[in-house]
C-alpha cells in the first residue's frame, strides 16, 4: 500500500524530470543552432539576392495583414482613448495616447505577433517540409551547408523585415487614429499633432520601439527556423512544429517585451 504510493510519486517525479531534461536538451540545441546560423551568415550577405528573395517572402508578403491591422488598431485606439479622455476634459491628448501606445508597445508587439502567425509559420512549414522530403540532406550531400544556404538568409530577412514592418505599423496606426480623431470626432487638428510631437521623444520612444522590434525579429525568426529544422520529418511533426512556432514566438515576444520595457522605463 505505502510502497505502491511511493512508486506512484516516484513515477510522477520521474515524468517531470524527464520532461525537464528533454526541454533543456532542446534549449541547448536551439542555442547551438543559433550559434551556427550566426557563424554561417557570411553567405547571406555575399550572395545578397538570397536574402532579398527571403525579404520578399517574409516582409513584403506580410505587408497587407500588417497594414490593415495597423489601420484598425489605430482607429480603435482613437475611439477608446477619446471616450476615456473626454471624461477628464483632455481630449486633445488623444494624439499622444495613440502615438505613444503605437510607437512604444503596440507597433513592435502586434507586428511581432502577426509576423509569427504569417511569416513564422510559413518558415517553419517550409523548412520542415524541406527536411521531410530530404532536400536538406540532398544539399548536404552536394557539399552545400543547408544552414548557410537555407537558414541564414531567412534569418537575416526576418531581422531586417521586422523593424520596417513595425515602423509601417506605427505610422499607419497613427494615420488611422488621426482619421478617427480629427475628421470624425472633431478634435482640433493642430492640437492633435502638436501635443503628439511635444510628448513623443525620438530617443526614448521611437528608437526604443525600433530596438524592441529588432529583438522581436531575432526571436521570432530564430524560433521559426529552429522549430522547422528540429521538426520530426513527418506530416504530423511539421504541423506540430508550426503550432509550436506560434505559441513559442508569442510567449517569447511578450516576455521579452516586459523585460525590455522594464529596462527602458526609468523610474
Amino acid at each position: 500500500m505505502f510502497s505502491g504510493l511511493l512508486t506512484k510519486v516516484a513515477n510522477v517525479l520521474r515524468g517531470i524530470g524527464h520532461k525537464l531534461v528533454d526541454q533543456l536538451w532542446r534549449f541547448g540545441g536551439a542555442v547551438r543552432f543559433s550559434g551556427y546560423v550566426l557563424l554561417y551568415s557570411g553567405e547571406s550577405f555575399r550572395r545578397l539576392h538570397l536574402t532579398i528573395r527571403e525579404i520578399y517572402f517574409t516582409g513584403v508578403m506580410s505587408l497587407i495583414i500588417i497594414l490593415v491591422s495597423a489601420f484598425f488598431v489605430g482607429m480603435v485606439l482613437a475611439l477608446q482613448g477619446y471616450n476615456t479622455l473626454q471624461k477628464y476634459g483632455s481630449s486633445e491628448a488623444i494624439g499622444v495616447l495613440v502615438a505613444l501606445s503605437l510607437v512604444r508597445e503596440l507597433g513592435p508587439v502586434v507586428t511581432a505577433l502577426l509576423f509569427a502567425g504569417r511569416a513564422g509559420t510559413a518558415i517553419t512549414a517550409e523548412i520542415g517540409l524541406m527536411k521531410a522530403t530530404e532536400q536538406l540532406s540532398a544539399m548536404e550531400m552536394m557539399a552545400v551547408s543547408p544552414i548557410a544556404r537555407v537558414v541564414a538568409p531567412r534569418f537575416w530577412a526576418g531581422v531586417i523585415s521586422m523593424p520596417l514592418l513595425a515602423a509601417l505599423f506605427s505610422m499607419v496606426g497613427v494615420l488611422g487614429g488621426y482619421l478617427v480623431a480629427v475628421p470624425l470626432i472633431g478634435v482640433d487638428n493642430g492640437a492633435f499633432w502638436s501635443q503628439m510631437q511635444a510628448n513623443v521623444d525620438f530617443r526614448e520612444d521611437i528608437v526604443n520601439g525600433v530596438i524592441k522590434s529588432v529583438v522581436f525579429g531575432v526571436a521570432c525568426t530564430m524560433i521559426a527556423l529552429f522549430e522547422g529544422f528540429d521538426a520530426p520529418p513527418t506530416a504530423e511533426g511539421v504541423s506540430r512544429a508550426t503550432t509550436r512556432t506560434v505559441v513559442n514566438s508569442s510567449l517569447a515576444v511578450l516576455a521579452l517585451d516586459f523585460i525590455m520595457t522594464s529596462f527602458m522605463i526609468n523610474p
Binding site: L129, T133, E134
Partner: peptide, 8 residues
Amino acid sequence: FQFGALFT
C-alpha cells in the same frame, strides 16, 4: 535520394 528530393 529515394523520392528525388528536388528543391521544390
